[in-house]
Write a protein that binds this DNA or RNA. Structure first.
Lengths: 347, 347
DNA sequence: TCGTTCTAGTAGATCGATCCAGAAGGAGGC
DNA sequence: GCCTCCTTCTGGATCGATCTACTAGAACGA
């Protein structure tokens, strides 16, 4: 079997210089229509698939793909409605600009843990070997080693977490504060916040904050702000952002010495789990709220905070693919969505 | 600002040859522990992020990422439970092997349409520029131009559509035939098959087959096989695989001259749409079946055919990432799942 | 006729690593 | 003391394109 044809092969076959072949694909206006036709005909004939993208990227320093990093495990991402909605926004922009989307698995990372060199190399391996022009980091804490690798590689990163670099945010704290004030108005004073975290095991009541995701921390703070000083607010770190975690966290919350009147979940998914548990146990005097306003929140009658997740994905992707966008810091609006799951606190 | 450090810089700084730096990252056993430590220390100090993956891929012909191609629009993929389940399986394997997952947008493709050269170049641009070691093609018809590009580039492709190359299949036709026989046993003789397709517009009754996805075609054939010759079977091409399409297609089906006793959707998502419409119109004497057994099918009481989608994703990803797998053609089992949505045909 | 501008195409360096064959130096055997 | 083997490290070719700067010749105006 003969060697795979490359640009030089084709150049020789066509009797032109390599530069001209390159131009035929990348700068049609630089050569005559007739010559370009002849070249592409010949390419089809000898089975040349176009310039090798790896070689092309090496020289041109462009790859035509953008990466997406999730704080949580990639395996969970596709069953998380927040993630899929964000990806949809990213995909819309990617599709319209013929850009590929690279999903990188990243190991869980704890701020406090110190990694050995080889542990860290393994943690960041996906990102080290990733071929991309820019990356979207969703909920990834600024201290995460993968962000350092990307910075060293000179790859632009747009984050959903507040930082000095480009980011697309919602005001998590203020949005949660608004929710808190609303709950305060309903008479709630004893509250447990259900927060997803990098933990894998059972829910931990009032556990340390350093494995809780950045947005979860802010939302918990905001709820405290809104409920006021005299309110009793405890956080449960629940583990992965899944319905099952929400159930377990709610169970842990109900087992508190002083029973809360409201469970404030930092995501709708956790809230749905909490609702499930309350329903199952026939408990009707405990309110639940969520955050995000995913499709199922509406069906479930969940009081929540809406954020424009798909738009977030679009904006982030545009910041990386569209050279004319100059904005480097965008804040998107949120909106309190009142439904039936939060009721006045029992007297 | 100084130039970004590269392998040669680091080699010079460490007083060793470039090969040694490369080995420090890729072949730790080829150098003494002390030297490797010294190199990695120095790398951290001068901010060298490790070998440039593009240059590395060019020489080594490995990229550390696998691609995924969906027959349908990438934007819809994340809201399609079949796709997300497949991706989850892929992600599991990718995570455990530190492989990245590349999602490539691909324009819709009609078998019969002839593309101009530049139209086709645009259609395949994402795939032409994609950096990957292998690709998973889900439901992509063998005639699709992107598959030719991948073949010319020498990139291995695992397909879910029967072909001469590697593939992971379910026996769509026989699975559907089993369903057909079951429905026949329930007395059904007038059937409309709801099939998703590359069309965008309104549902087309008995439209041409060439824009229907390959699996949809096979399942339609299987149902015919199972229902037998005397049964009246018509296909509606419904457009995208969405609940909304399912509703519209069901509406079209009910408008038939001879009203069907059963709507056989080639996917659960379409079936859910059909159920929604029937429920809304208060129609109780028309049965519905699906295919895939997605999570919501259970909640909806949908009679359907289960296929192990996540396992499919795992197997396909393994065939591309694990050099020890030699199997080139795998058939996974299916199972008829009887629930309440298919009832005996009215007399 | 001369100089200028424009178009179509070219030459050769370069991007940043990995691969393969080989060499230096020390250990071990006889 | 000599030879062999093993470990550790090196030199230089190579992967396949794009980039920048340049040229030949046509076209054009004065």
């Amino acid at each position: 079997m003969s060697d795979r044809p490359n640009l030089k092969t084709l150049a020789a076959a066509a009797g032109v210089s390599p530069s001209t072949i390159s131009n035929a694909y990348n700068r049609p206006e630089q050569l005559s229509v007739a010559l370009r036709e002849r070249i592409l005909d010949l390419a089809a004939e000898i089975g040349y698939p176009g310039p090798n993208p790896v070689a092309s990227s090496l020289r041109s320093r462009r790859t035509g793909s953008i990466g997406v990093l999730f704080a949580q495990d990639l395996t969970y991402a596709f069953s998380d409605p927040y993630c899929t909605e964000l990806l949809t926004g990213v995909a819309e922009v990617a599709t319209s600009s013929s850009t590929n989307v690279l999903l990188m698995p990243v190991g869980p990372h704890s701020i406090s843990k110190v990694y050995s060199r080889d542990e860290e190399l393994r943690l960041v391996q996906g990102v080290r070997q990733a071929v991309l022009d820019g990356a979207i980091a969703d909920g990834v804490d600024g201290s995460h080693p993968v962000l350092r690798v990307l910075a060293e590689r000179g790859i632009p990163v747009v984050s959903t977490v507040d930082s000095t670099g480009p980011c697309v945010l919602v005001d998590d704290r203020e949005a949660a504060a608004e929710l808190g004030r609303y709950l305060r108005g309903l008479g709630h004073r004893r509250c447990v916040v259900l927060a997803d975290s990098m933990d894998d095991g059972d829910p931990v009541l009032g556990g340390s904050d350093d494995r809780v995701f950045p947005y979860a921390r802010l939302r918990a703070l905001g709820v405290r702000d809104g409920l006021g000083d005299e309110a009793d607010v405890v956080t449960v770190s629940a583990g992965q952002n899944t319905v099952a975690s929400g159930r377990a966290a709610a169970a842990a919350a109900l087992a508190c010495a002083v029973r809360p009147t409201v469970l404030v979940a930092v995501t709708d998914v956790l809230a749905l789990g909490a609702l499930e548990l309350l329903h199952e146990r026939g408990i009707t005097d405990v309110s639940v709220t969520g955050f995000d306003d995913v499709p199922r929140a509406r069906e479930a009658g969940l009081t929540t905070v809406r954020q424009p997740v798909r738009e977030k994905g679009r904006v982030m992707a545009r910041m990386l693919t569209d050279p004319t966008t100059t904005q480097t810091r965008v804040t998107l609006p949120t909106e309190l969505v009142v439904r039936a799951s939060a009721r006045p606190a029992p007297a």
